[in-house]
Simulated assay, not measured.
Amino acid sequence: MKKLAIFDIDYTITKKETLMELFKYVIKKNKKNLRFLPRAIYCGIMYAIGIYDERKVKETFLRFIDGIKEEELAELVKAFYDERLKNILYDDALEMMKKLKNEGYDIYLISASPEFYVNEFYNIKEVNKVIGTKFGFENGTFVRKMVGNNCKGEEKVRRLKEVLKDEKIEVDFKESYMFSDSLSDKPLLDLVGKPYLINYKKNHDIEILRWK
């Protein structure tokens, strides 16, 4: 049986929220994309007051890359990783991945962030699997339509088990790890025998690690 070391992404292995970093990166590359800033602010307000759920927020927010060709998006997110994403990783997270990989664990990253760019974390040589929220393409063009559910909470557990079943992998969850900055990941934290909260600001029964 395999042992997993599962990591959330945003604020767990990264110092910043990655989707917002992508938005800022696109604006930096082309100032004309500032025209999407009011929409981003509007989405935040609608979510905060409970009118938009996370699906609606993401589908609306991603207007800034709506209609981009699949090949162009691939080039964009590769540059985004090389120029920005890899520079906001916690050193302690990378060290933990290396340590656990050397101890025989498979490294899984599971995030609510869009899979079309979190797949770039396969650049971390220790990573075995990346799972994120899926978005669709039509005729080779990106569309702002979420495929399936937002990969958060119980959905992370469902997606993980789906992947393990499809790949015929048996896991010893009692000996597995889960690292997250948020209790929104409690379903995954409860699944494993070795859960940890990262930089959590309140006291909790789950052990808290301070990563830099």
Rank of each mutant, 00 (worst) to 15 (best):
M1G: 13
D10S: 10
K16I: 14
L19T: 10
E21Y: 02
E21Q: 12
V26E: 12
K29H: 01
R35A: 12
R39E: 13
Y42H: 11
C43A: 13
Y47V: 12
D53I: 10
L62W: 07
L62Y: 09
E71C: 07
L73H: 08
A74K: 14
V77Y: 03
A79M: 05
A79W: 00
E83V: 04
R84F: 00
L85I: 09
L85K: 04
I88G: 05
L89W: 09
Y90S: 01
D91G: 11
D92V: 10
L94V: 11
L100M: 02
E103G: 03
Y108C: 09
L109E: 00
I110F: 02
S111L: 06
I124H: 04
V127N: 03
N128L: 07
G132P: 05
K134G: 00
G136P: 03
N139D: 15
N139V: 08
N139K: 14
T141Y: 13
T141G: 00
K145Y: 00
M146G: 07
G148R: 09
N149V: 00
K152Y: 11
E155D: 05
V157S: 04
V157W: 06
R159K: 15
L164R: 06
K165C: 00
D166K: 14
V171H: 08
V171T: 07
D172P: 06
F173W: 11
K174S: 13
D181S: 11
P187K: 02
D190P: 02
L191V: 01
V192E: 01
P195I: 07
D205V: 13
E207A: 10
R210H: 12
W211H: 03
